[in-house]
Every structure is written in C-alpha cells, then in structure tokens.
C-alpha cells in the first residue's frame, strides 16, 4: 500500500480488518477433541457411580465433578492451560454478544440441572441402572455433539457481534 491509499485500497484494508476480527472470533471453536471425551466420561462416571457404589458415593463424586469444571475454567484462563486444552487464543469478552452468554448459560444450566437431579433422585425406581443409562446418553451426547454445539453457538451468535467494541464497523 502506498503512503496515501486510494479509496479501493482503503476499502480492501477495512474489509481485511473485519475478516481478521471474524477469524479471531471463530478461534473460540477450536479445542482439542479429548476435552469433550473427558467431559463425556466424567458425566457418565458421575451418574453411574451411585448405581454401583450406592447413594453415599454422591457426596465425594460431586466434589470430583465440581473440581473437574473448576480446573477446566482455570486452565481456559491461562496461556499454558489453554495450550494444554488445544485453545490457541483467548477471545476478548467484548467480542461476545449477550446472546452468546445467554446461550452458554442456558446449555450449562440444563446440563447441571439434569445431572444434579439424576444424582439426587433416591434409589427405588423400578428401572435398574437407569442412572448409568442416562450417563451413557448424556456423556455420549457431549462427546459426539460437544464440538458441534460450539459450532452452533458460534453460528447463532456471529451475527450479533460488532457495535462499539468493533473498530472496523463504520461507513464502509
């Protein structure tokens, strides 16, 4: 580009800025496959443990379950931890729309409530090993649909981005 870009060059540069911002935002979709697999297995174990070890196992398995989520949260926020998880970037909070946070919160709430309810329901239901069955379904769903759900969240919220935080959204 010359010292004083032409209008066409300026338009191309602005388009590039926007495309790079979108590219950076789309990096939220990247995470190692094993992370979904580990979470799927953790959910399966959490639900299946009371079927095999009794209701009293819920207390210590709950702590292990919570510890897994906290560890994941901490790893996500550090450069080295994110590298371990296969995340090459940490996207700025300002890049996410409110809709994105609402969707993530809703998905997490549904997951946590389902798991908590399943773990707390007392024994005596007529279907044997029903928690194990539910664990297979939920864990399997997370392993299979985990990466796809991130893609879905990304697609759903991509259009809601921009505004004051976005430098390239102007008159071009």
């Amino acid at each position: 580009m010359t010292e004083r870009p032409t209008a066409a060059e300026a338009a191309r540069a602005l388009q590039d800025v926007d495309e790079r911002r979108d590219q950076a935002f789309s990096s939220t979709q990247r995470e190692a496959r094993w992370v979904s697999v580990v979470f799927g297995i953790v959910i399966f174990l959490f639900l299946a443990i009371p079927d095999f070890l009794g209701q009293e196992a819920v207390s210590w398995s709950s702590w292990a379950f919570i510890a897994t989520f906290i560890t994941y949260g901490i790893l996500q926020r550090t450069r080295r931890g994110a590298s371990v998880l296969g995340r090459p970037t940490s996207v700025r909070k300002q890049e996410f729309s409110r809709q994105y946070f609402r969707n993530v919160l809703l998905v997490l709430l549904v997951l946590v409530l389902t798991v908590a309810l399943a773990a707390l329901v007392p024994d005596g239901l007529t279907v044997p090993y029903w928690r194990t069955g539910l664990g297979v379904v939920l864990g399997g769903t997370l392993i299979y649909f985990g990466p796809r759900s991130r893609d879905w969240l990304f697609t759903k919220t991509k259009s809601g981005r921009g505004g004051p935080g976005s430098v390239a959204h102007g008159s071009h």
């Binding site: 590039d16 790079r20 935002f25």
Partner: peptide, 24 residues
C-alpha cells in the same frame, strides 16, 4: 494514517490480535 499499519501483513496481525486477549 499509521505508517506502520500501511503494510498489509502488519495490519492483518494487529487486526487478528485486536479480537483476542492473546494468541499463540
């Protein structure tokens, strides 16, 4: 205009980094 950012590669790098806290 910033003369440093007139270079397309440098503009791309800075635009990419503008959306993230950090990147590998």
């Amino acid at each position: 205009l910033d003369p440093v950012l007139l270079d397309p590669t440098r503009l791309s790098i800075v635009s990419l980094l503008a959306g993230v806290e950090w990147a590998e």
